[in-house]
Computed example of a mutant assay.
Amino acid sequence: MDVNGYRSDGVGASVAMVNFWTVDHAGADAPAPTVEQVRELLAPFSFLVQDARAAHVPLLAAWAAELRGVFEAADLEEAVDRGNALLAQITVNPRLVDHGYGLHVHYAPSGVPFVDRARINSAMGIANLLAEYGIDRSGVCAADACERVYADTSRNGRRRYCSEACANRANVAAHRARKRAATGSQGD
């Protein structure tokens, strides 16, 4: 039972970081993200974002590029290799804590810099995702021309798009293509 959300926060943060740095702020003409944008990006995932510093931004961008490799993996073996490469770069010192949210496990040692906490939680989230679901519930969006990634930890595990908007566009395009094909075959 996942009572503290670290697993889902790590997965969600991984998806957010990959999409933020490798899609939204990728390319030479993209403006460099600010520390305020990084704080806003990671706040929903239970990070103590007030500890983020401007010096962490390029380090997190490089980490996001490494995380992306797990989502792009062609098979489970490649994803595991990439996940293990992420795990090899972190130091985990799990400990039980209770600071008002009930007893739970923290992966990061006390007092580590923000960037290390982000790396530890995202690597552990990805490792748990792979261990629990393999690669069947994560990847690059199935919509044409979309490069964003997704991870599906829902009960049914059917997600293949980064967002409802991409899923809707793909469904509408498929519907129109079927309609054109049906209309074209009737004229023969």
Rank of each mutant, 00 (worst) to 15 (best):
A151K: 07
N19C: 03
A123C: 13
V49D: 08
E147D: 12
V112D: 04
A131D: 15
G10L: 13
L103N: 01
A26F: 00
R95L: 05
M124D: 07
S8P: 05
A85E: 11
V149C: 07
V15L: 09
F20I: 05
A61M: 07
G83M: 08
F71W: 06
V15S: 09
M124H: 11
C141N: 01
A43H: 14
D81Q: 05
H25I: 03
A73S: 13
G83F: 06
F47W: 12
E78N: 06
V92K: 03
P109L: 11
P33G: 08
G27N: 00
A61G: 14
S122C: 15
A108D: 13
G125I: 13
I135S: 01
G100E: 12
P109C: 06
V105C: 08
A43I: 10
E132Q: 12
A145M: 01
R39L: 09
A28K: 02
D98Q: 03
G125M: 14
T34Y: 06
T91S: 12
Y101W: 07
A73P: 06
S46Q: 14
E132V: 07
D24Q: 06
F47K: 13
N84M: 10
D81K: 05
V149K: 07
V35M: 04
R137Y: 02
G134Y: 02
E72C: 12
F47P: 13
E77M: 01
A85G: 14
V70P: 10
F114D: 09
G69M: 15
G10C: 12
Q89N: 13
G100M: 11
A65R: 14
E36H: 10
A85D: 13
G111T: 08
P33F: 01
I126E: 11
I120C: 12
D29L: 03
G83K: 07
P44F: 11
H56T: 11
L41T: 03
G134R: 02
S122T: 15
V112G: 06
A85H: 10
